[in-house]
């Protein structure tokens, strides 16, 4: 499992890099948050208040290494600081309230979109040279539509004009949160349109890459041999061609997660969906820097974890990486 050990090492390093980046950004960027905030308030604020704000950000005049140790120590205790806009709620609390919404919505939608796109990609590759080639430009167009604009249009058509879906929120406001069928139903109902947006916005990308990979693999000798063996076409396609073509797609899946998450965040904003993306948007609007950074950190760690999962899946799918296990 040398391959896996190395991957875990790499991701551990990346996670550390994300932590450090998160530490460095507010300290090294030209404008420090306190000044930015004070500019916003446009008034003379007395130094004591300024110091208090700076403390809230965890910014002090200590040398960087000392600050860094403090920062890591705070992180180890799960302390991401205190939100400014919702003072004095800890950032961790806000994030843990928002995270399940995003994991549910973005997680499920992304997996659905990947499966749908990959399946369709294999199909288009198999049927290449026919009408199916003409689907490609349409897919390219679909792939290029910004998520948030797609969300706007879908809201307009399906929700405002047709009234099929609610256009905001994660559940019916009048309901009391709980494990009631009514409440869960409301959650699913509210999640449907954002999920459709994310799937529509991202599946075309998977289709295109999977099609190209499969077409490339279809030219390999082992696929020709499978045909020469007289195996049924479906078998050749699935166990020989698609099985090999999916490998780079899995790596691609992991790497595109960042983009998908980014796009999904914008989708949440459109739908006022109470997830991480919307929270980040609000934090940015309110210049709530601690919350912004906490969210950045959590999102990064989540994507890093997802990458690790994809790499583990890869190990199971490609025997070659298991060499020297």
């Amino acid at each position: 499992m040398k391959y896996l050990a190395r991957k875990i090492g790499l991701y551990a390093f990346i996670a550390w890099a994300a932590l450090t980046l998160n530490f460095l950004i507010p300290r090294l960027m030209p404008g420090d948050p306190v000044t930015l905030l004070l500019e916003g308030s446009q008034g003379a604020i007395d130094p004591a208040a300024k110091a208090a704000i700076a403390k809230a950000y965890g910014i002090s005049d200590d040398p960087l290494p000392v600050q860094y140790v403090d920062y890591l120590r705070a992180l180890a205790h799960g302390d991401l600081g205190t939100s400014i806009s919702q003072f004095p709620v800890p950032v961790v609390d806000i994030i843990s309230r928002a995270l399940p919404w995003t994991l549910g919505l973005v997680g499920v939608a992304t997996v659905v979109s990947f499966l749908l796109g990959t399946g369709l990609g294999v199909l288009l590759a198999w049927r290449r040279g026919t009408w199916s080639d003409h689907v490609l430009p349409a897919l390219t167009f679909l792939n290029a539509i910004p998520y948030f604009w797609m969300a706007l249009i879908l809201v307009l058509v399906l929700s405002v004009h047709l009234g099929l879906f609610p256009n905001a929120g994660g559940y019916e406001r009048i309901l009391f949160p709980g494990w009631t069928p009514q409440f869960i139903g409301s959650i699913l109902y509210h999640a449907l349109l954002p999920a459709i947006t994310i799937v529509l916005g991202s599946f075309a990308g998977w289709v295109l890459s999977m099609r190209n990979m499969t077409v490339t693999v279809l030219g390999e000798d082992y696929v020709s041999l499978a045909e020469a063996k007289g195996l049924p076409s479906r078998h050749v396609l699935l166990t020989y061609a698609a099985r090999n073509a999916i490998l780079p797609s899995i790596t691609g899946f992991a790497l595109s997660l960042g983009a998908v998450v980014g796009g999904s965040m914008l989708t949440e904003v459109i739908f006022n969906y109470p997830g991480v993306g919307y929270t980040l948007f609000s934090a940015v609007q309110a210049q709530d820097f601690p919350l912004m950074q906490g969210l950045f950190l959590i999102i990064s760690l989540a994507v890093i974890a997802a990458n690790l999962v994809a790499d583990v899946a890869y190990v199971f799918l490609d025997p070659r990486t298991r060499q020297g296990a």
């Binding site: 040398k2 391959y3 050990a5 190395r6 090492g9 790499l10 020297g324």
Partner: peptide, 8 residues
């Protein structure tokens, strides 16, 4: 011999 890449 073996994998050239990486930390280990």
């Amino acid at each position: 011999v073996g994998e050239r890449r990486g930390v280990l």
